[in-house]
Computed example of a mutant assay.
Amino acid sequence: MADHALIEMFSGMRVLVAEDQKTIRHLTSLSLEQLNAATVEAEDGVEAVELAGREAFDLILMDLRMPRMDGAEAASRIRRSGGPSAQAKIIGVTAHQTESAALMLSNQALDACLPKPLNLHDLAALLEDQPRPHQHDEAQETFDTATVDALRALDGGASLARSLTGLARELTKAWEVVGRLIDGNEVQTVGSMSHRLSGLCLVLGARSLAGRLRTLEELAEAGETAALRAAFSAMTPEMERTREAAERMARDFDLTA
């Protein structure tokens, strides 16, 4: 990609650079600013979470190994916060190649990982190849595209199809009993069920529903029965959208595997 194309890609973009090494942080920021991007720096994961909670960033470059809080945890907290940068593209940056693939499967807050030293041409190509979901595609709104693509690439989609079918089945079963459990004041069971489903949703890329399930878990742990019942009722439409999208994608991937 030529330099003028890089300028077109990054011009006007707000970028949070989270990196504990001062020299690397400054050089990365300077390189982006020369492409007309606006940068803000964070020296560790804690500061990155704080800044992302106050300001809206288009892109967050997250060093994966930082003091106080590592990049993977910081990315997860930013996603769960629902703050102004919760939907930003978050790219993990690491000097450890084996770390990248593992984190992409285990930490669904990261959109992708790139090796150090960061190459802006590689970053631009990645951003160009992995656009944000289009609003008219309900499945893409419900499931993170990058996560689904990464899992599908493992074996052509066969395992993903089975996992999505399992998720749809688990959601159906859960919604048949959660209401009764809340009415029976069995909030601990609701919390355990929400925790398990949240983890499954995160692994498969259903981030929004995972966040709502995490809220349900926290309310159950606090014993807030009235708030728990209201939250469960409010999230039912999203659960149904996620279940339907999972079933539809499972059928599509099973046919192409």
Rank of each mutant, 00 (worst) to 15 (best):
L160K: 12
V187Q: 14
G53R: 07
R80W: 11
T172C: 03
G82K: 13
E138V: 15
L64A: 04
L171A: 00
V15T: 01
E240V: 08
L209K: 03
D58P: 07
L181K: 15
T189E: 14
S208K: 14
S31C: 04
R180W: 03
A226M: 02
A5H: 12
D70Q: 09
G71P: 08
P117L: 04
T94M: 03
F253H: 14
L154D: 09
G83P: 08
L213F: 05
R243T: 09
L154Q: 15
L216W: 01
L35P: 07
A161H: 10
A161Y: 08
N119A: 05
A2L: 12
A227K: 12
A112N: 15
F253V: 11
A231Y: 02
D3Y: 08
T28S: 05
D129A: 15
A88S: 15
G199P: 07
A37N: 01
G179S: 06
L200E: 13
F143I: 06
L120N: 02
L16K: 01
A220M: 00
H96E: 09
R25G: 09
A250L: 10
G71S: 10
L219H: 00
E43L: 08
S81R: 11
L200Y: 08
A95D: 02
T94D: 00
T142N: 11
E55I: 14
R248N: 12
V203H: 15
T39H: 03
A150H: 11
E50G: 08
E186W: 06
E240S: 05
E244V: 13
N119L: 04
G83Y: 09
F10T: 01
D20S: 04
L151W: 14
P117G: 01
G199C: 06
V49H: 04
R207K: 15
R241K: 12
T145M: 14
V190W: 12
G191P: 08
N36I: 02
L30P: 00
F57I: 01
E221S: 07
T147P: 05
H96F: 10
L209W: 03
Q34L: 12
R77E: 13
N107L: 09
E41W: 02
T145A: 14
L51Q: 12
G211H: 07
A109Q: 05
R54Q: 15
D254S: 14
F143R: 05
R80N: 11
M239E: 06
G166Q: 02
R25Q: 14
V40H: 08
D137M: 06
A125S: 09
D44L: 06
Q130Y: 07
M62A: 11
G83V: 10
G179M: 01
A161V: 10
H121I: 09
E55L: 15
D183M: 08
E138T: 13
V93M: 04
A168P: 01
H26K: 06
H195D: 04
G71T: 06
G83H: 10
L16Q: 00
G53A: 08
S85E: 10
P84T: 09
T225Q: 14
A72F: 07
A146E: 09
